[in-house]
Amino acid sequence: MKHVIQAALSAGKEIMKIYETEFDIEYKEDDSPLTTADKRAHDVIKTTLQTQFPDLPILSEEGRHLTYEQRKDWKEFWLVDPIDGTKEFIKKNGEFTVNIARICKGRPVQGVVYAPALDTLYVADESKGAYKVEGVLTGGNVKVQPLPLPREKDITVRVVASRSHMSAETAAFIEELRFKYKKVETISAGSSLKLCLIAEGKADFYPRYAPTMEWDTGAGQAIVELSGAKMETAAEKKTLTYNKENLKNPWFLAYRK
């Protein structure tokens, strides 16, 4: 895992160099934003992973997207989002992450989510569980905590919602919870930090009834599931799978019982 973590941290350093400047914004065919930081982070991660794991292919949001015929026989690969939450990066609110997941036979078995502006790292490995690491690069006292974090029992049910994508279906889900529970509180967050809140135990539900791609969720799903929480498709209550013919995810619900 150390090489994967290093790839995420190195990408985070490159991102922060640009974050602190006035940067240009491009727009892709789907109108999603793209910055120099996305490109540089992709290059750093790709170089590190190819050097350390030359036999494993890489599927990155900012890389060349292979056809399903070209990748359908992959048993194992890296799934990368160099900057998850580019809109949050552009807004400069700090809620963006670097996502790297190792996918084996369609499921995430390792995940790294690094929030460079917060200097907070989430790491998950199926043989070691999930952890939150604070103060990774800032020096001083590095704080490592297994997930989920301790939480005082109360009657409040916390729902995490997207900072930039609140659909009508998500709003309806939250209203439904209000009929079931005495006290429901909504927490807003950007990028994969929403999934990390479930992994930490700071939120109970994260309904994502809006579009996402595989690279948006692979690393976060590893951290959620290896912290003991669940992440299932909204319709069929099945685990999300990866390297599908269509790389779009179905709607899903992440939750902690």
Rank of each mutant, 00 (worst) to 15 (best):
A234H: 04
A37F: 10
G190R: 13
E76Q: 11
K143V: 13
G190A: 13
Y114P: 06
G63N: 01
A203Y: 11
K87D: 12
W78P: 00
T86M: 14
K194T: 12
P54S: 00
V133Y: 07
L118R: 15
Q221P: 01
M231A: 08
K13H: 13
L59V: 15
A235L: 08
F252T: 01
E62N: 15
G106P: 00
T86W: 15
R163T: 15
G85Q: 11
Y27P: 11
A8M: 04
K248Y: 14
I25V: 14
I100F: 09
L240Q: 06
H65G: 10
G140D: 03
K28M: 00
D73I: 02
L240W: 05
V112N: 07
I15A: 03
L147V: 02
E14K: 15
R40A: 07
K143S: 07
Y255C: 01
M231Q: 15
P211N: 09
G220I: 03
D73A: 12
E225M: 14
I5F: 05
S227Y: 05
S32N: 06
E169H: 04
T156C: 02
P116M: 05
E29T: 13
H65Q: 15
K46N: 11
L34I: 08
K143T: 10
P116H: 10
K2G: 08
T48D: 14
A41C: 00
F89W: 08
V113N: 01
V144W: 14
L149Y: 08
D81I: 10
Q50V: 07
K132R: 13
D125A: 07
S192V: 13
G140Y: 06
T48N: 12
R163C: 06
K237W: 09
T241V: 06
G12D: 07
Q52G: 12
K194P: 07
V133H: 08
G201T: 05
C196W: 07
K46S: 13
T241N: 07
A199V: 02
F252Q: 06
E232K: 14
F96T: 02
I83S: 11
T51H: 14
K91I: 06
E169T: 00
A8C: 02
E175G: 02
T67Y: 01
L197T: 02
R178T: 01
S164K: 11
L226N: 05
I223S: 02
L149R: 09
T47A: 13
E69H: 13
E134D: 14
D119E: 03
K2L: 09
I198E: 14
K128C: 05
E69Y: 09
V160N: 00
L79K: 05
M166N: 06
L147G: 07
V136L: 08
G139S: 03
T120F: 05
L149C: 03
Q221N: 06
R208W: 13
K143D: 09
N246R: 11
R40E: 15
L137Y: 10
A7C: 11
D216Q: 09
E61D: 00
L9S: 03
G94F: 15
N246T: 01
E20P: 10
S10C: 11
A115Y: 10
V98N: 03
